[in-house]
Design a protein around this nucleic acid. Structure first.
Lengths: 340, 340
DNA sequence: GCTGGCACTCACACGGACTGAGTGCCAGCA
DNA sequence: TGCTGGCACTCAGTCCGTGTGAGTGCCAGC
């Protein structure tokens, strides 16, 4: 029906105008800025309908309308074509990410890039250990009963732990251990590691058995500890821009939640590659994120994401642009990690 | 002289009151809150002197006085005894830092701890590579002409770089290389590494010479690259508290400067262990840090600092408390790193 | 050299009037 | 049936004038 169709157009126009001006938008301004082909009075009728259905709301009588979370959601769901990035933007991405020397550097550049492209707060998750594969396992003797275990994954992530050994391990023993462990684990996905441990310990030469068990235990601990999922955050300065008022006055709870990391990580857990996830306002269960939207996507070469990245900003954000940026950056990061 | 002495007391009282209340402090309130033994009128005279000498200023006529940067400086320089931390605080430090699994974890906890203790933004620098010693150097073959070099230092820091090798390196060659390099570098301070390289390449067996040269070159690069000095930042939420107004309106430039890292790193470069450095307002050359004070100290066991840590906040901060916290935390971190 | 008193200043808070963007409703027109 | 122009109404934000009070500088007196 022509009517519903126009309602959608009106909603879209409201979202666009409100995002760009940050002022509640009225019927008259709408008619002036968009070629809707109808008069303000008609638009008013449509707006009344939209309000009744909960897509928009007015902050107070005699003010314009503002989209609700539901309104943004509807708008985002109807974003058919993700608008492609400009050539300049693509070039910026390449230039920014090239020349990174290691994983830390890659993620650091990524987060800065995302923050710059979107003018929002950017978050990037380290590649999840459990989905990475072992590239190398190194043992360095520290003292008679202490070893340093260094785990290097194919995504370039490095984890280290000190292992208190049950027996003294001299240099030769350590060399034996290293060979044994690498033979067992190199190339294996870390998620499969726990399955291999039992067999490995059993088949180990008796004099190494206790040591293998101790090291394996530490390895498994490394996987389950919450510290395994690290987050890089950047662009927090974008919160202080002046639209700080978007978060009903204070950005403090939001900053705190971001530093907590765990909140963001939980949101990111659900994300897969290639499909951009958008969570709008109240859709984020966490209280501090009410009033904020979170646009994220997984990165990684395969069909399972190695990790996630995204941006956090006010619900009043440029969804189309941010979704495009997040997706493009994720794709590049995926490529970059697959190469190295 | 009794007069100068009282002036100092008055200044101290003004700083204390202003820090705790954030209101310009007047003569009457001063007389009421502090036992100065004189009347408000007398205090007014002293305040006039202090103002003339540039230690305090009044935002506008008929408002109380506010300390200037010079006033804070004077106050800080006369802080004779650094007030010791409470037992609860000491316990909090221990509890917070115990149980850290690796360097990343230690520094992450440190920055959170500092931010919590001081209610300011905390910054912690990774141990400087050039002052660390090599614990182990690991080589992992990636492809025919590519090696992954992993550098592990005695401070627990791990750096990795991909080396494009001039010659194909099979597993045995890599093993030889590893032995050779570790024999040469293990235990050596990284600052001395550059001196050793020439000799090492010369004495290497001919078939390894090119490879040794390539890897050594990468190692040296790792040391000079600006990426060598990393920074962990935490507690940015404390900027959004409400005293955001301390930074003449906007915390944005400050947040940007913090994310830049380089600004803070430059300030931190000058810092030594055991002596807490305080830079107040304009004393920080960088424009964004005008209006902010920076309290920092080096950490590390020896007489040379491995790195620095500190807090950034409004000039209107609790200098005594922050200096005490920074120093105490640095001491614990130094111990912790020396142990492992 | 300290104190009480006094006149003066001025940021800030309070309150009323005004303005204008925006709305809802209604009668009229295609 | 659906769109349009007109009209009365609402109310946040702004402007302006007044009042208040904290704070000051100065001066005479102890």
């Amino acid at each position: 029906m022509a009517h519903d169709d126009r309602c959608l157009q009106v909603l879209r126009a409201i979202v666009q105008d409100y995002v760009s001006t940050n002022d509640p938008v009225g019927s008259k301004a709408l008619a002036a800025r968009h070629d809707l082909g109808v008069s303000p009075a008609t638009i008013r009728n449509d707006m009344a309908v939209l309000e009744e259905e909960g897509y928009i709301t007015q902050p107070h009588t005699s003010a314009g309308r503002v989209p609700t979370d539901k309104g943004y959601r509807f708008f985002v769901d109807r974003l058919n074509a993700v608008k492609p990035l400009s050539v300049a933007e693509r070039r910026a991405i390449e230039k920014f990410l090239d020349g990174a020397v290691d994983l830390h550097d890659v993620l650091g550049r990524t987060v800065r890039l995302l923050a710059q492209l979107t003018r929002q707060v950017a978050v990037v998750q380290y590649p999840t250990l459990s989905r990475s594969a072992v590239r190398h396992l190194e043992l360095v003797p520290l003292a008679a009963y202490r070893l340093l275990m260094v785990l290097i994954t194919d995504t370039g992530r490095v984890e280290q732990r000190v292992v208190e050994t049950p027996a003294e391990a001299d240099v030769e023993t350590v060399a034996e251990l290293r060979t044994l462990l690498n033979a067992a684990f190199t190339g294996a996905k870390l998620a499969e590691a726990s399955g291999k441990v039992g067999e490995l310990v059993e088949n180990a030469p008796p004099h190494l058995r206790a040591l293998v068990a101790a090291i394996s235990a530490t390895l498994l601990e490394t996987l389950v500890e919450p510290t395994e999922d690290r987050l890089v955050i950047g662009g927090t300065a974008n919160l202080a821009f002046g639209n700080a008022l978007d978060f009903h006055g204070s950005v403090r709870p939001l900053l705190e939640a971001l530093e907590e990391q765990v909140v963001v990580l939980r949101l990111m857990a659900a994300v897969g590659p290639s499909t951009v996830m958008v969570r709008i306002g109240e859709e984020n269960e966490h209280e501090a994120l009410t009033g904020a939207s979170f646009v994220s996507v997984g990165y990684g070469s395969g069909d399972q994401a190695l990790g996630g990245l995204g941006v956090v900003g006010p619900t009043r954000m440029d969804y189309a642009g941010n979704m495009a940026a997040v997706r493009a950056v994720a794709r590049y990061v995926g490529q970059l990690l697959a190469e190295s």
